[in-house]
Nucleic acid binder design. Structure first.
Lengths: 339, 339
DNA sequence: TACGTAACCGGTAACGCTACCGGTAATTCC
DNA sequence: GGAATTACCGGTAGCGTTACCGGTTACGTA
């Protein structure tokens, strides 16, 4: 381990005090330009790199922001890229950790980060997360938190999320408008907020169109292709089989698609299908699959923006929820009306 | 900012010295069990959390390992998950940064990390990276480095990579074995190691089978669906059009597929196609597309394993290159021989 | 001439923790 | 019974940096 040069070295070299060097380095007003220049050039010469650890320790600020996500799939990794974008811009380093959808892992990550490693947290909670004590610890320490994608109780932290209800509404409304009348929804786990909100939109669209909802058309299953496959298979067996399916993720849509094809049904004529997230592959399948697109990058940027605002403001009592709008992407799988 | 309790608080509470508390907390042998228990319980009571920043500063070790990747696509994010896995296991925190394939961003990230934030670096360099001074700085400071996925000159750091030449060989050999004779390759940028290695395998397979390579069948283009699409379109126009295409990424395979379909050619009869990475969507396309699978998770784990070994060993002069084997996944797009 | 005021700069403490040295009391050994 | 060993524990320095409080010099101003 070669010795890193410090401000002390610079001071010794110039026969000035370390405090002057420190001030010169940060361009303080009470240092003459002459000494500033001298310091700068010696710093250059010695390849001086400030020891961020020492600084952070001293000023109790790390200038890094912790990001915890359940995984790094298409959606989340794009959101993280958004966070990265504005964080870097603002001079912060981002520390990304994955919880792997595990509550324990999430708690571990938060507690490690809490040990003075980060100035705050931007988090998308795992699907297992039901309690929020680990997050409250940040609040108690007055460290800003913002939640994104997956919601967290508002008392605890501001949220940046998609308008999931509207998204569900949009998808369902589109199917109804295309003449589908017996629409099933492959929802996520029963108590997952993100899933329920999308289902609310589904219900709302039915109500507005005076269609009644068959409870058998509401399927709760895991966010997962295989589950969706089996669920769809079951659905299609029933005598009053649905004529359209709305899945709350594209992966689930794929599972549904496979079951539909196996059954020999044609999309969109026999049955309609619409997914969620608009992953790029959807336009490559036959038929191409409709989906709901969310502004992932913007959600990430917004989360980081709010985070940094809170970091710089004294009063963080106002906890807001930022809701971004989705967009409906119509493709072959759900478009049976010709214009 | 509520005051965090420190070992000083614990010491005061028990009327013992801070050094004893420090030792008790880390279960040192020269502290009686009695005081250890007392310390532990008071620590619990005060919600004591060690200040990792102070510790890291003091012992000049952060216990975090920096990871820099060009992006977080399917392949890289799985590799990162592998790194995460063994790092967490070994008690390290992982700090992931994206360079967005930008050299400038990569340098920025490395230099920030170098400011005593990490104990070393696991990196997959950006495609723009041609010089390695920013990485050498780690070496100069005796901080371990390991490169993965994208290779780095061996003098600088050990590598963990796929056997790209063998992968290229495997794909090409398979196409030849299926009776294709005029095989094109959509390679990456001209000076990208990863791409050239795969091309070497392509050449080797030809040589071994006494097929000569038509230079017009070697196309260099960006790692990108659109480029691949246009390149393929051109290829298919030529009078002696290829009867098979090997692309060095799945995204490129998709681009090629679209061009092939547009041209009205059937896979695998008219033309064969094989991609690279085995992204999950390939099995959903019609036809399903063959590909080369790399052990992503294992590469990540291996990189982290080697990294940690180097962290703990004194002598890091032996710089190795770990080469993992790919696997050929045969699907419809390239299988025209019935058995 | 005396004094106020900039303009600079230096000294020191402190952040929380650990490493090291040294000390005391109790126990063991010949 | 004296020396050596063991089992604990305390004091202190210091990691690199910044914040704070002073101090010195030079220059105006009355």
């Amino acid at each position: 381990m070669k010795k890193q040069s410090t401000i002390k070295d610079i001071a010794k070299r110039l026969n000035i005090s370390i405090s002057t060097v420190s001030r010169a380095l940060k361009n303080a007003p009470d240092v003459s330009n002459e000494t500033k220049n001298a310091v700068m050039s010696v710093a250059e010469e010695l390849h001086y790199q400030p020891n961020r650890l020492a600084v952070s320790f001293r000023v109790k600020q790390t200038n890094t922001i912790g990001v915890i996500v359940p995984n790094l799939d298409y959606v989340l990794s794009t959101m993280v890229k958004g966070i990265d974008e504005v964080a870097l811009e603002a001079g912060y380093t981002v520390m990304v950790c994955q919880s792997n959808e595990s509550f324990g892992r999430e708690v571990l990550n938060t507690s490690r980060m809490l040990q003075s490693l980060v100035d705050g947290l931007i988090i998308s909670v795992s699907s297992e997360t039901k309690t929020f004590d680990h997050i409250k610890k940040f609040v108690e320490r007055d460290l800003p938190i913002v939640a994104f994608d997956r919601i967290v109780p508002e008392i605890i932290a501001p949220n940046v999320i998609l308008d999931n209800e509207y998204a569900g509404y949009l998808a369902t409304e589109h199917l109804i408008e295309q003449g589908y009348k017996n629409i099933a929804i492959l929802a996520g786990p029963k108590n997952l907020g993100i899933s329920n909100a999308r289902m609310d939109g589904y219900l709302k669209a039915h109500k507005e169109n005076n269609l009644k909802v068959d409870q058998k058309n509401i399927i709760h299953c895991d966010f997962n292709q295989d589950y969706a496959y089996f669920a769809t298979k079951e659905l299609l067996k029933s005598k009053n089989r649905p004529d359209a399916i709305f899945t709350i993720s594209d992966r689930m849509a794929i599972g549904a698609m496979i079951a539909i094809k196996e059954r020999g049904l044609k999309m969109p004529t026999d049955i309609g299908l619409i997914g969620f997230n608009n992953e790029p592959m959807l336009s490559l399948l036959t038929p191409t699959i409709s989906s709901i697109e969310q502004p992932m990058f913007e959600i990430g940027k917004m989360a980081a923006k709010i985070f940094i605002e809170r970091l710089h403001s004294e009063d963080n009592s106002n906890v807001t929820t930022e809701i971004l709008k989705p967009r409906l992407i119509i493709r072959e799988s759900s478009k049976r009306k010709m214009i």
